[in-house]
Design a protein around this nucleic acid. Sequence first.
DNA 1: TCCTTAGTTCAAAAGTTATTGAACAATTGG
DNA 2: CCAATTGTTCAATAACTTTTGAACTAAGGA
Lengths: 118, 118
Amino acid sequence: MTLPHPTADQINLPIVLAVLGDPTRLAIVRYLASKEGVPMNCGKFLDLASKTNLSYHLAKLREAGVTRTEAVGTSRLITLRRDDLDKRFPGLLDSVIAAAGEDKALPMVGSADTEIDA
Amino acid sequence: MTLPHPTADQINLPIVLAVLGDPTRLAIVRYLASKEGVPMNCGKFLDLASKTNLSYHLAKLREAGVTRTEAVGTSRLITLRRDDLDKRFPGLLDSVIAAAGEDKALPMVGSADTEIDA
DNA sequence: TCCTTAGTTCAAAAGTTATTGAACAATTGG
DNA sequence: CCAATTGTTCAATAACTTTTGAACTAAGGA
């Protein structure tokens, strides 16, 4: 890991809520949760926003402690920080993901095959 | 009830999260939860923000469907919309409130006795 | 009726967040 | 080395959100 991440105890509730309170970012988190364990690269989310804008949103998620971003080659592998979030805010991530799963208005990550293991 | 509130099914996840992602509003919600069943008037929260600003934040909470505001005389009685939130987003409110309870950085509603039943 | 209490509304200012495009950097493959 | 791929940074702008003070409304009590 090269990029700056908060430690688990630096993760802050209002910031996490504010970061999740954006439809693009919520869609990213929902997708990461649906493929948990499989690190995603940024390109996977290109149907949610432009490359530049994605860089911005993914940085927000990382800085809030919601995701972990690992640099591998020219790629960034993005994962949910589930253990840290569960430790810090038990049940929060699960209820958000469950609620997001019901949300038909939320943008959807498309089905282009860009998974790391595809 | 006179003021406009969303119906339960109009309550929208990203909006609720964004509204809760503000320390002042989160403090209000935490306090309402700690005194659940006891409607609060706006004055109760005067140590969090100015009267005008409170009016703004309480309107945000109401418009998001997080609180219900009932006009009684010159007062507004504010309650958490727990049933609607629980129906819509099971577990979410509880995990947010539990997490907020641990948060030493969150502003606190003082102990001036302005409860409706005090 | 007049005063007080409780809260709203409005417009302006301040601050913050999101979005964009152009330019950049780093790695990988030919 | 050259080109392509992957993503970042920067500065500008657009769009929102928060905060403020002054003016206001509406109810209740003296």
